[in-house]
C-alpha cells in the first residue's frame, strides 16, 4: 500500500537482493532468524506439527523462488513472512473446517517457547506480549480470534456475540492501540510522526 513507516530496513534489502542473486547463505540466514516465528505461528494456527513443518517449508521455499515478490520498501521481512505463513495456515484450516464442524475457541496464544537462546525473538515476543496485555480485553479478544484462528470479522462477531459493525471497529481500534503501544516501545516500523486524521 504505502512505504513502510520508520524507513526501509537495510538488512531486509540486503537479504532480498542476495536471495535474488541465488545466494544460499542468505536463505540460511533468513531461516535462522525467522524460522521460530514462522514455525511457531503455523503451529499455533493449525495445532498440527506436520502441517506447521510443511507450511514453514512452503513459506521459505516461496521466498527463495520468488524473492522479488517481497518488497522491503513495503514491509519488514518478518511481517511479510508472518503474512504468508498466516495465509497458508488459514487455507489449511479452511480446508479442514469444511470437513469438521469448527467451533472457535477463545484461547490466548501460548507464550513463546523454546526460543530462550534466540535472544532477539524472545525479547521481541516479550515486548509484543506486554503491548497485547495492555489492550482492553474486548479489543484483544477480537484481534486474537481474527489473527490466530483466521476468522473473518463476521465470524468474530458471531463468536463474541456482538454486531458485525462492533467487530470491525474493535479490530480497527485494537490494532491502532497495538500499533501505538509498539511504536512507543520503540518499534520503528510503527513510528508515526504526524497523523492526518
Amino acid at each position: 500500500m504505502t512505504e513502510v513507516l520508520g524507513g526501509v530496513d537495510d538488512n531486509d534489502v540486503r537479504l532480498r537482493d542476495a536471495l535474488t542473486g541465488g545466494c544460499e547463505e542468505a536463505l540460511a540466514e533468513v531461516y535462522d532468524t525467522h524460522s521460530a516465528t514462522v514455525y511457531g505461528l503455523a503451529l499455533r494456527l493449525t495445532g498440527d506439527r506436520g502441517a506447521a513443518e510443511d507450511i514453514a517449508q512452503e513459506v521459505f521455499v516461496e521466498l527463495w523462488m520468488r524473492p522479488e515478490r517481497y518488497d522491503p520498501r513495503r514491509t519488514r521481512l518478518r511481517s511479510w513472512l508472518c503474512m504468508i505463513t498466516r495465509r497458508r495456515a488459514i487455507d489449511w484450516l479452511r480446508r479442514r473446517r469444511t470437513q469438521e464442524h469448527y467451533a472457535p475457541v477463545l484461547a490466548e496464544p501460548a507464550a513463546a517457547a523454546g526460543v530462550e537462546d534466540d535472544v532477539l525473538t524472545a525479547s521481541l515476543a516479550a515486548q509484543v506480549r506486554l503491548a497485547v496485555d495492555e489492550l482492553p480485553s474486548q479489543h484483544r479478544q477480537a484481534i486474537l480470534l481474527a489473527y490466530y484462528q483466521g476468522l473473518t470479522y463476521q465470524q468474530v462477531a458471531r463468536a463474541l456475540n456482538i454486531p458485525e459493525g462492533t467487530a470491525k471497529s474493535r479490530l480497527r481500534s485494537g490494532l491502532r492501540r497495538l500499533a501505538d503501544a509498539l511504536a512507543a516501545a520503540g518499534f520503528d516500523d510503527l513510528a508515526v510522526s504526524k497523523r492526518t486524521d
Binding site: A112, A122, L190
Partner: peptide, 15 residues
C-alpha cells in the same frame, strides 16, 4: 497490518 503481523512473534517456537 504491520502491527498485526508483530503478533506472529508471540508464538515463536523452535522448529
Amino acid at each position: 497490518a504491520e502491527a498485526a503481523q508483530w503478533l506472529g512473534v508471540l508464538t515463536a517456537r523452535r522448529p
